[in-house]
Design a protein around this nucleic acid. Structure first.
Lengths: 340, 340
DNA sequence: AACGTTTACTTTATCGTTTAAGTAAAAATA
DNA sequence: TATTTTTACTTAAACGATAAAGTAAACGTT
């Protein structure tokens, strides 16, 4: 077993042909005869040739690589999304370079530079909750790299794939109202971020439709994390302003509410009821399982990959689209009825 | 805003120096004067220069990139591990190329080739549960790429970072026995895989120490997934061979047990008790929270990254080590005592 | 003043691949 | 049969960076 790294020219000299012939043969270029193509492929296989992507990128300006930037990895929504994106990318012969911005928009900017530096063919990004300035995409645009936003977005001019945040929330909150709830809180969500803003607007729309007056003491701003749900419920309790039901802007926020409820000895759904936007694979195991607005992560990943590849592979500039994936309210163990 | 991509030679010609001067200046090479270095850096910044990694790789044979291969992404253990590896890699100025083998060892082989093709500086891998042939590393070794195995391993000759599967299981099972449990089942785990094998051996060792005879009807082979736990409990029930306590080889397996228990109307811990190897961030939310053997994923990620970087950056060939991260039994809501 | 040394650059060659531009021989066409 | 076209290659050039080798000027040293 030789441990030299095999290059095109090794194969070429072995077969006494030029490297270009080898390169073309391996790519099934019509210039090369069937016979030679086969000979080259056999030799390549036998010699254990593995192409050098760096070299081919430099020459061909194509890496077959998609850069993926998420705010967090170890998070059930994002890890499902990453998996879905990874699988669909692979089916289409693209690799994934993954970076996480850890909800830090400075790091996010660096990640964008990294992607450009690594010459990814396209970028999929879900921005941090604090990113509210689309100027972060300046470099990307300057370098003409296709980009698609997913779930969390900031730039209206870009193609994006999102859930039906407004509609899903509207449906869930309307359902609750129709079941007899009226003091419904909206908890969590940075309202600069699209998902916070849109979910809030779905909530408000539902109140309006049912002629319930907006009560700002029941709308809590904040983040998308467990701690945000936790502190919100604590606050309601301390201010003696408990709502009948909490709409949690994400599943982690809902968990925070549950956690605070446990400490305060409030029973869900008896003392306080709960719905969340999004669920997790663990929802079946908690009691009661939270009723939620579903997020079809697999579909989101698939569509996002399709869109970015379409942008990469079509030479003309496609106009931007906003793909909205329907999100429906799923009734589980909470929000069943108002009253004991 | 020009939309040309800026290269070293653009900067060079702007400053009327050679590209080499620019290249060296940007890398703080001592050949270049303070003055010139500053001038170059300013120009680079102003012109929006972003290095082309493919080019520098080709020239310098270094990508500052680590390939990460996991069997699954959307899995709480692996997503935490990925996050930890990502963060520590970034701190050390390495990027991550992520691939998932989806528990498919053929795909795993392809992923290894991809990594070589992308010229990663080193590879971190957690093999699929079916990988039992270290020959998969043939190409990697031939290409002299440093590799470190994490958690799931197959090749004794490689450096690896693992949990104390034997010791952790031994501790947990011993605890259970001391609390009065004697019919303890071991569920899940492909016993070809190291984690299955070692956890089984910790279990057997605990039985032996406490002079409990091994009962093969209580040892269930299988995978590491929820379905495996589910079917195991169903089987015990149908065969009228319920154990007093189940040691689940992974947290998902434990969830499967819970799920089956729910269907069979068996209460945990009253009718059947449960421990798992590993937990999840959701464990606090299920009732009762499962007592488990802890896995310090962050530490595992950090050590794995340290080891692979050490291998990458030291020219001499380091001999292989096996780093064992201690794993301790953590008592939560299960396995408290035997008897009603 | 004559010499070696250091400083701060430049020139040249190379990494492994692909694209563009040849070219000789074979095949098709007139 | 003479000419054009096609086939199946090759040679040359390039992608953008870096490493190695070269060089002129400034600086030290005795």
């Amino acid at each position: 077993m030789r441990n030299q790294i095999i290059t095109l020219s090794d194969i070429a000299s072995k077969l006494s042909v030029s490297t270009v012939t080898v390169s073309k043969a391996l790519r099934n270029h019509p210039d090369i005869s069937k016979n030679m193509t086969q000979k080259v492929k056999n030799a390549a296989k036998k010699m254990g040739y593995i192409p050098n992507k760096a070299a081919s990128m430099l020459s061909a300006r194509k890496t077959n690589t998609i850069g993926l930037i998420v705010p967090k990895i170890a998070h059930s929504f994002f890890s499902s999304l990453i998996e879905s994106i990874y699988n669909h990318a692979r089916e289409n012969n693209y690799e994934i370079i993954l970076t996480s911005s850890q909800e830090d928009s400075e790091l996010e900017k660096k990640n964008l530079l990294t992607m450009i530096s690594m010459k990814v063919d396209g970028i999929l990004i879900s921005v941090t909750r604090d990113t509210n300035d689309k100027s972060i995409y300046g470099v990307v645009k300057k370098n003409k790299i296709p980009i698609v936003e997913i779930d969390r977005t900031v730039d209206d001019s870009l193609t994006k794939v999102v859930f039906d945040d407004i509609g899903g929330t509207f449906q869930a909150v309307s359902y609750a109202i129709e079941k007899g709830f009226s003091r419904i809180a909206f908890v969590g969500g940075n309202h600069k971020a699209n998902i916070g803003k849109d979910r809030l607007s779905g909530y408000l729309r539902a109140l309006k439709k049912h002629k319930i007056k907006r009560d700002n003491t029941l709308i809590v701003h904040g983040g998308f994390k467990e701690a945000d749900g936790y502190s919100a419920l604590k606050m309601f309790y301390e201010q003696d302003n408990l709502p009948e039901l909490i709409f949690a802007v994400t599943y982690p926020v809902a968990l925070g509410v549950i956690s605070a409820a446990k400490e305060l000895k409030l029973k869900i759904p008896r003392d306080i009821d709960l719905i969340s936007f999004g669920d997790s694979e663990f929802n079946r195991f908690i009691y009661p399982p939270i009723s939620y607005v579903n997020q079809k992560t697999d579909e989101m990943g698939r569509i996002a990959v399709d869109k970015i590849i379409k942008k990469i592979e079509s030479s003309e500039i496609l106009n931007s689209e906003k793909i909205i994936i329907s999100s429906k309210f799923i009734l589980k163990g909470t929000c069943k009825f108002r009253g004991k």
